[in-house]
Write a protein that binds this DNA or RNA. Structure first.
Lengths: 205, 205, 205, 205
DNA sequence: TATGAATGAGCGTTCATTCAT
DNA sequence: AATGAATGAACGCTCATTCAT
C-alpha cells in the first residue's frame, strides 16, 4: 500500500517522537532501548527505522524538539510589551519549565542533551544550535533593557545575557533534582539581588 | 602480592578512580566500557572489581568525587575575610570551574551526573547529597551578606542562595558546551545586574 | 522473516530444545555454555534468547521435557489390560529407559535434574511436579493390584507405590554409570524377590 | 614455620573437606565457588590450594568421602547375625540415609556425584568405585540369603543384589526431593511386596 | 607455610540494526 | 508500507588459579 499522504508520514513521525520522548524522559537516553520505543509507539522495528535511520538520529531530533516549547514561552515574554522586568521574565520562564516538567515532559530531556553534548560531537552541534537560539532571545532582551534605560548604553549586554541565561539551568536542575524550588523562589531571589527596575512611563497596551 | 599496606590499597583505589574519570570525561558514562577502564588503569578486570563491585559503584564514587575540588574552592571563598562581593565570589568559583575543566577534569563529569540523576534513583541520592552540600555554602554566604548589611535582615536568604547557586550550572554548561564564556563574562554580568556591594568598614587584613 | 506461522515458532523452539538436550546430555548442565547451544542449534544468540529468556529457563523446560517420553511409556503399561505383573511392568519401563538413554537421550538429563533440584528451589519445583506425575502412575498401578487381588484390600498402597517407583532411579543409575544392568536383570531380580503374581481369570479383551 | 606435624596436615585437610562439604551440600558442586570454600573454612586461597590442587580434586575427594558413612552403616547390617530380613535391612539403611541427610550432610552430595559422573569421566571413575563397593555388600547379603534358604540355591544373586541396591537411590531421592517418605514407608513397601522371610532356626546370639 | 591481590579467559546476556516476507 | 525474526559484536562481570611477599 505505497503512496501514502504526506500528512500520514508526518503523523507517524510525531507518533514515534512522542513515544521516544516518553521513554527517554522516563529511563534516560542510553537506558532506553529501541525495543522500548517500539513498544511505546505501538510500531514495529521496521516502521520506526523507516522514519529514523538510527537511535542517534532519534536522539538528535528530540534534542532539538526538547527546547521548542520552552523557546516559544521565552520568546513571547522577551518580546512582549511592556518589557518584563528580570524578575517578571524569570517567573514566566520558570513557570514554563514547571509546566513542561511533567513525567515525560520535554524539559526532562534537556539535561540529558547537555550531558551527551559533552562527549558526542554530533549531538554537541545540535545542542549548541539550540542553546544559541535561546541565548539570542536573552541578547535581544538585554538590548531592550538598554533601550529602556535599565542598563547604561555602554553595558556589556553580551555578559549580561549570558549571565541571565545562566540562571535557567540552575533552576531546571534544582527543580528536577532537589524539588525544593519553584518559580517564586527564583523570582524572589532575583528581586532581592537585583536593583529595582521600574518603568518610568507606562507603555501603551 | 598479599598482605599489602592500607596505603597500597588506597593508592590502587585512586588509580582506578583516576582512570575511570579520564575515561568517563572523555567518552561519557555509558559509552565508556569497563574494558576502557581496565586499559586506562593498566589493571585487570579482576583487580578493578576487587575495589569497585560494579560499574555503577564506580560511577557513584566518581559522582561524589567530582564535586569535592569545586566544593573546596567555593568553601574557601565563602568563608574568607573580608566577605567577597557576589561578583568576586562568582569570579573565584568560575576560575575553579575553568581550572577543573581540563580534558579529564572533574567538572566534565558533573553534567553527566545531573543527567543520570534524573533517571537513576540511586545516583540521584548521591547527586542530591552533593548538591545539598554545595548549597549549604551558599546559604552560609547569604547569611553573611545579611550580617554585613548587604541584604536586609528580613531578606529571603533561602531564595537568594538558591538563585546564586543557580548561576553555577549555567556557567559550567556555557563554558563546556559553547566555550564562549570565561570567569570575566560572569563577573561582568553579575556586576552590571547587581547593585554595588561595598564594604563600609575595611576588615582588618 | 517476520509474520511467521505458529508452526514455525514451535519448530524453532523444538530445534533449540533438541540442541540443548544434546549438549546438556553430553557435557552436563553447568559445563554446557550457551555458545555450545548456539553452535549445536545453528542459531544465533539472539534467536535462542527470543525463545528462552535465560539458560535457567532452558534448563527448566528440558527438565520437564526429559520425563515425558518415559512417563508415556509407563502410562501405557500401567493402564494396559490385562494388568502387567510387577516384573512385566518393570521390564517395560526398563526397556523404555534403555531406549531413551542413547547419547543425547532424555534419560541422561534426569539424574542431572535430580541433582539440581537439591540446591535450586526453582528447579526443585519442576522436578517435584514431574516426580509426582510419575508417582501418580504407580499409585494407580498399586490400586489396580488391590482390585485384582494381588494385594490385600487393606494394603498400604502408598508405601508400595513409593517402593516400586524407587526401583526406577536405581535402574537408571546402574544402567548409566555401571553399565552392567539391563531390563532382564531388573526383571529377574524382581521375579525372585516377589511372590508369583498370577492372573486367576483371564480378563476379557 | 616449616616442618609441620603429619597430624597438623591431616587436620587442615579435614577442615577444608568439612567446609567444602557444607558448601557443596548447600549450594551445589558448580555453584559453590572456591571463594565460598575459603570463607567457610577460614583459610586463604593459598592454603586450600596447598592441600587440594584444584576444585576438581576437592570434588573427587568428597565424592568418595560422601559414601563412607553410609557404607559403614550398611556393612554392619549386612554382616550382622542373625541375617536381617530385607525389610529389616532396608529399614536400617534408610535410617542411615535420614541420619546423614541433615543440612550439610554427606548424603546430599551423593546425587550430585551421580549427576557429575554422567558427564565427567574422571569423577565417573570415583563414583563407579564407590558404587561397586556398596554393591559388593549387597552381593554378600544375597549370598547369605541363599545360604540361609531365603533364596533357592540356583537364584540369580547378581540380579537380586542389583535390584535390592536399586531401592536405595529411589529412597534417597524421594526423601530429599519429595520429603514424603521415611524409613517406615520403605519397610512397609518391601514387606508387602516380598514374601515373608522367616528364620527357621534361631541363629545363636 | 601461609597470604590474598592480581590475573584474564570466558561466561550469560543484550540490543541496535537488517531484510526476507 | 510494514512486519518482526534473526543477527552477532560487544557488554558487564565471575572465579579458578597463581605467585610475590
Amino acid at each position: 500500500m505505497p503512496r501514502v499522504s504526506e500528512e500520514h508520514l508526518e503523523r507517524r513521525r510525531q507518533q514515534i517522537l512522542d513515544a521516544a520522548q516518553t521513554c527517554f524522559a522516563r529511563k534516560g537516553l542510553h537506558t532506553t532501548t529501541m525495543q522500548d520505543v517500539f513498544a511505546e509507539s505501538g510500531l514495529s522495528a521496521g516502521a520506526v527505522y523507516r522514519y529514523f535511520k538510527s537511535k542517534d538520529h532519534l536522539i538528535a531530533a528530540l534534542t532539538t524538539e526538547a527546547t521548542v516549547d520552552l523557546h516559544a514561552a521565552m520568546s513571547e515574554a522577551v518580546y512582549s510589551d511592556p518589557l518584563p522586568t528580570p524578575p517578571e521574565l524569570m517567573h514566566t520562564v520558570a513557570e514554563a519549565v514547571v509546566r513542561l516538567s511533567t513525567p515525560g515532559g520535554a524539559v526532562r530531556l534537556i539535561p540529558q542533551a547537555w550531558s551527551l553534548a559533552l562527549t558526542d560531537p554530533n549531538i554537541a552541534d545540535y545542542v549548541r544550535t539550540n542553546m544559541a537560539g535561546v541565548r539570542k532571545l536573552w541578547f535581544d532582551y538585554t538590548r531592550r533593557m538598554v533601550d529602556i534605560g535599565w542598563l547604561p548604553p555602554d553595558a556589556d549586554t553580551d555578559a549580561v545575557a549570558k549571565t541571565l541565561l545562566g540562571l535557567l539551568p540552575g533552576f531546571i536542575l534544582q527543580y528536577l533534582i532537589m524539588g525544593d524550588v519553584d518559580p517564586e523562589t527564583l523570582t524572589h531571589g532575583v528581586e532581592q539581588l537585583f536593583p529595582t527596575f521600574r518603568h518610568t512611563a507606562v507603555a501603551p497596551g
